[in-house]
Design a protein around this nucleic acid. Sequence first.
DNA 1: CGATAAGCGAGACGGTACGTCCGGTCTTGAT
DNA 2: ATCAAGACCGGACGTACCGTCTCGCTTATCG
Lengths: 210, 210, 210, 210
Amino acid sequence: MTSKNPDAKAPDASRRSERSRQAILDAALALVGEVGYNRLTVEAIAARAGVGKQTIYRWWPSKAAVLLDASLALSGKAADEGGWTGFPDTGDLAADLKAVMRATVDELSDETYAAPARALAAAGATDPGLGARFTEQLLEPQLALYEERLRSAREAGHISPGTDLRVAVEMLVGPLTYRWLLRTGPLTHAFADEVVDRVLAGIAAHADTA
Amino acid sequence: MTSKNPDAKAPDASRRSERSRQAILDAALALVGEVGYNRLTVEAIAARAGVGKQTIYRWWPSKAAVLLDASLALSGKAADEGGWTGFPDTGDLAADLKAVMRATVDELSDETYAAPARALAAAGATDPGLGARFTEQLLEPQLALYEERLRSAREAGHISPGTDLRVAVEMLVGPLTYRWLLRTGPLTHAFADEVVDRVLAGIAAHADTA
Amino acid sequence: MTSKNPDAKAPDASRRSERSRQAILDAALALVGEVGYNRLTVEAIAARAGVGKQTIYRWWPSKAAVLLDASLALSGKAADEGGWTGFPDTGDLAADLKAVMRATVDELSDETYAAPARALAAAGATDPGLGARFTEQLLEPQLALYEERLRSAREAGHISPGTDLRVAVEMLVGPLTYRWLLRTGPLTHAFADEVVDRVLAGIAAHADTA
Amino acid sequence: MTSKNPDAKAPDASRRSERSRQAILDAALALVGEVGYNRLTVEAIAARAGVGKQTIYRWWPSKAAVLLDASLALSGKAADEGGWTGFPDTGDLAADLKAVMRATVDELSDETYAAPARALAAAGATDPGLGARFTEQLLEPQLALYEERLRSAREAGHISPGTDLRVAVEMLVGPLTYRWLLRTGPLTHAFADEVVDRVLAGIAAHADTA
DNA sequence: CGATAAGCGAGACGGTACGTCCGGTCTTGAT
DNA sequence: ATCAAGACCGGACGTACCGTCTCGCTTATCG
């Protein structure tokens, strides 16, 4: 009789109220922006959404899960609207990476997007289950795009063939995320550019030929 | 110019009970290891420490602040016992960095140390005030050691004279911290070594001379 | 026109749990007998009743109010069980009054009944709002019975037609209550009889005919 | 090791600070008037009096005891100032009793005097130990004056020689106190007069001669 | 006449209870 | 069967006071 009770009656998703689902996700995003994650409560989400608390608990296990779904919806909508078909690939790896990293800096500086993201990252650090979903559903798709671009560059011979692409990706986004979460310094385009330049220098093709 | 209530009577620190202070910090560390940060309560800390709740609220504004002080004390004690006088400087920069980064990997893999640290990093991400103290008091001293070692290397001509040391430091610890907090992959010595090698390649002296 | 906060959401009384209501009243009576009014706490009532504190605060403003309702229920039950249809009226006024007053003396000497009553009287003396409810709901019904009996006697010509019945009633119960609350002397049947005799002498029919 | 520890060092009364004693009693009276007995706290008394809490606990066992002493001092001062040498004895018993009872009505209607008195009566009803002191030290002296006056009347043949003086006294003050504490009706001179007349009629000399 | 011990103002301390908030479950009536 | 509404049990919150316990600091005897 654990929390993930296999006997639990799974709610019938086909009867789910789409209206309520949307209202809950909207309310969660609005409230996390207003009061922050720590003061965000399921009760307030329900009240704001005009929904019974049970309707939230029926479909999500925690406020963090609600917020994660809300963020997924948000990023999905952003992708649709922005017409993002993928990572730019102009042939100039440094330029492409800088363009994306600068856009990321801008996004992380906009508290509308950043507040829920920060909250989820923080909650995920403490709650492994949530963290797994967060990483898998929000982070990985992004990382995969980076990785794909780097793979293309490696095949083009622009970076060393022995480069571990996964490590390279994390060397790019790691420092950015570090500054963003831990606020050890200003999150600027210059910082992003510098990281890109140094990482590329570290994995450059000539590095192995030397 | 207090942060919250200018009318608040500041308690008289000279009368503070050292016995209670220690008991509270010990209890906080013990409990965060047992139940995790989310289930950690001020009430439980007080009970475990054999202390009135007010004695906690008198000296700390939140459980996060207690945990920060506890971590500071812990790292202070670790430094004392470990006889750490600073960063190793054998002349071999890569080896020195790898030694420290591997030690960090080990520490972050030991949940005894990692649980409170993760909790604080997460709480700090959400609470700027706390985050500032966390970064300043726990993180910066570590970063400063890295920076100093890199400065020494730069002066010795082992890395490019134009290197922004601060950025270099964050390129080292950023990816590590990223994996640790977001669990995007296993936190291994190999990963640490790879990061060190790639970063050093990126800031190597010959990079500019080439 | 609520007494305190016009914004307060009134709870929906139709959904109230009768089981909880009963458990709370029972627990309150039991506890006031065990530890006395001063050491009676809302927390203990809730614990004993197996109820959340909020369920008490939702329906009552204070422990005194709980105790008042508990006493009302108790006196209601006593009236039901005792088959009390009203004041005795045998035609012998003195005998009837003595019977009732002696019964009152017995009741007030039984701490089971007396403890909550004393507590309520005391709390009511200090808290006008509570006092009004106490007087109106517990005391007045009793006084009305006395008054009715005296009216019947006045109509029968057994007491002076000019007698202020209200004052007469309070001359009967006042001294009794005085001894009970202030413990200026033993509360005995003899005392009750003496008061009845003296008061009747003071309002006797011949007093005006003389 | 009970609360009345015989080993307890009795404080040395000869060293007691009269200034503090007065300040405490004054503060207690002032505060009980401002916030009522229930919200009166030892801490507030100490703060208002500019006194350490221990100085209160050293000399009194509870806030009720402080208030009792304060009331004693107050009634003592009132007696001094009023030049009250005792009960009036003009030879007209009814007139004398009415004069005193009317004065009592006036006093009980003045919340300055009434608030602490009501609080003490209420506290005494619930706390036997305090009640005993209250009755003995504040009430009995008053009752004794009544009793003395009635004895004088009995010796003068104005009331029946068989009258139980103690009961007679309580028949006079009981109804008054009852109305005052339980607020069953307005506390007026007319009420006092009516009670005096009826009681005297009940214990009149001719009552036995008839 | 200087030590020494009391009372004293101040307030930190271990506790208990307060009244509130919210988590997560359950019940009711409407759709 | 889901939903809006919200009562319910439980538990933690942060606060207010309780009564005890040091702290230095006057006093005010007494050796």
